[in-house]
Computed example of a mutant assay.
Amino acid sequence: MQNLIPKPDSGKVAPTRTGGNPKIENLEFAKRNIPSASSALVIGGLLGLFQAIFLIIMAKPLLRFMGIKADSPMLTPAIQYLTLRSLGAPAILLSLAMQGIFRGFKDTKTPLYATVVGDVTNIILDSIFIVTFHWGVSGAAIAHVFSQYLISIVLLWTLRKKINLLPPSIADLQFGRFLKSGSLLLARVIAATFCVTLAASLAARLGPIPMAAFQISLQIWLASSLLADGLAVAGQAILASAFAEKDHEKATATAVRVLQHSLVLGLVLAFVLGVGLQFGSKLFTKDIHVLHLISISIPFVAATQPINSLAFVFDGVNFGASDFSYSAYSMVSPLFLLNEI
């Protein structure tokens, strides 16, 4: 973690001519050069472009690999959605990188406001493109891509006031140090994504109705589970500060408290979903066959909430302690157990 913290003199910015305006001069000196932040932005942008190109070119083979047959009614809309949605990959990865930078500043409000603006825009555009224009899944994809770029623009505009987005030279970028920790987190993300992708592939092979029920259940499960991410972010920021100050007592107290809160949150979510989905599932579909399958999944969605909540917060605790290796290994190791089964 110390390697990613800028050295004392790296925060200085050479003075620039501002016409003698003290306000502009103060603004210029307020900016800092943070190589790790610049590296994150560059890597995020490049990976986003690569991901977009890869998904657009490989859309049909990937969907076939997922189990969608050539004569399946899901194939055409799936290709349309995946191709259009892929255009938002650069914005998504950039926004994730910038959210991490803001967390490093202990600024969780700016990402929240930007996300709210993007989500509200997404909802409005969904109504226009899907209901008014009847664009179907293509409209949903376009609305999502537009909202993601809006989030990235808001975050980028705010971040440029705090730091210099690009360092004075390429040599100042810390790709090696950044990728050392990033590779561990990448392994963790791949492991988590693999599990969800495998489940989606198995559901797709069963046909449109099971796939529809699976997607509705999955989105509800993810949306409720991600509520614990707020606790994880708060715990991560406080823990990182405590470890930097070598205040181990504060770190221990913080970890215990956020874990307690996460367990309570998980139990509350389990009760709300267990009861609410009995009636609320009709908000997503009117198909009786899909509703029947959703009713079967309700106990699993509800019962896993305490586990999910604890898992998210444990990740935040590990990230705050810069223990990326444990987070990666703990996520990857179950895959080998799954392979043995």
Rank of each mutant, 00 (worst) to 15 (best):
P168L: 13
S201N: 12
P111Y: 04
G20K: 01
L337V: 15
V189D: 09
S36G: 07
T115G: 11
T76L: 14
F178A: 06
G274Q: 07
L96D: 02
L125K: 08
H144S: 13
L263N: 08
T193K: 10
N339T: 15
Y113M: 08
W135D: 01
F300N: 03
S295A: 15
S147E: 00
D107C: 00
L218W: 05
L179I: 15
L155W: 02
T108A: 12
L231T: 02
P90L: 07
L310P: 04
A141F: 07
T115W: 03
S138E: 14
V154S: 05
I153D: 03
D323N: 15
P168F: 03
S169K: 09
A97N: 05
P61N: 04
T83S: 09
L239S: 08
A242V: 12
D229G: 14
G274D: 05
S297K: 07
A251H: 04
S147C: 03
I68K: 04
A89Y: 03
G100C: 09
V290Q: 09
Q305Y: 00
T197G: 13
I190Y: 03
V258N: 00
S325G: 11
F50I: 12
G104K: 00
L310I: 10
L231M: 10
I79Q: 03
N164L: 15
F29G: 07
F105P: 03
S225G: 13
L259F: 10
K246T: 08
Y113Q: 08
K106G: 06
D107N: 14
L263H: 07
G176N: 10
Q148N: 13
A242Y: 04
S183W: 01
Q305G: 01
H144T: 12
D315R: 00
A204K: 06
